[in-house]
Amino acid sequence: MTTRREFLKIAGVATTTMVLPAQASNGPHLDSERFGVLADLTLCIGCRKCEWACAGANELSSYPIEYYDDTCVFEKYRRPTTTEYTVVNRFPASETSVQTDAKVQCMHCEHPACVSACIVGALQKDPMGPVTYDADKCIGCRYCMVACTFQVPAYEYLNATTPQVRKCTLCSDKTLNGSGKPACVEICPREALTFGKRSELLKIAEQRIRRNPDRYIDHVYGEKEAGGTSWMMISGTDFKELKFPEVGDESPAVVTETIQHGIFRGFSGPLMLLGLLGATMKAMKKDPSDG
């Protein structure tokens, strides 16, 4: 026969152990050798070969290479879609800037909001860099699309039976086992895209900016944006003009995770209160029979 005091003890310990593991996250585990891509927008000429290579590598479409010579697409600003994991946009020269072509794709954040929002773990941050997607786990809630800072994930609305969330994979089938570079990096004729260790790329980016201060603005987009991203850009034009979103240096996932985990940690209080209430009610129910 447990006494009231013993019951309260057990209840208290149980709630505490239940709540303890849910703590504010410091982000996913990352390898110090993790890789990324540096895009030098001053070298990009908008040839759209990356789009062609991407479509082929991911079996998204089978247009011939000539199809991508069409520059009329630059008339409208484009975003990645379910059949185009990457698109190049052209920004004409203005009074303050030169003509710049800028590639858009999943940035593969260091602390991705989509991974944080995914309730089934279909999206995962690989310690080596890529944000991977497991279609078998995905339930199609599309929280990732809402969560993404860069509005990248696209959803196959036209696929009625097995729709998937589609976004750049950083060619993880090749890059994770070290057998190759992403398709877009491989094809880029001017090597505006450099694939390598993120730490090395940051050094190269800083070196290029330091050596050619007239050519570049002093900003590596993705070094700190949204807590840092695997894709990083250097440019001669302000990133605001290139429609790169202005995001803070902290990953939005940090904010949401802190709030949410904080609430759950705080639940130990209400739970204990509830336990106390239940125990009191039980005790009060017993009282008449005693007396």
Binding site: L43, I45, T71, P189, R190, E191
Partner: peptide, 27 residues
């Protein structure tokens, strides 16, 4: 990694002028 490969080196040399003068990226 900081030096372009042969492909990148050729293209960077040629396209610089050809793009300015011919306004064309055509391969």
């Amino acid at each position: 990694i900081s030096m372009p490969s042969l492909k990148g080196a050729y293209h960077r040399q040629c396209i610089n002028c050809h793009r300015d003068w011919a306004h064309d990226n055509a391969c």
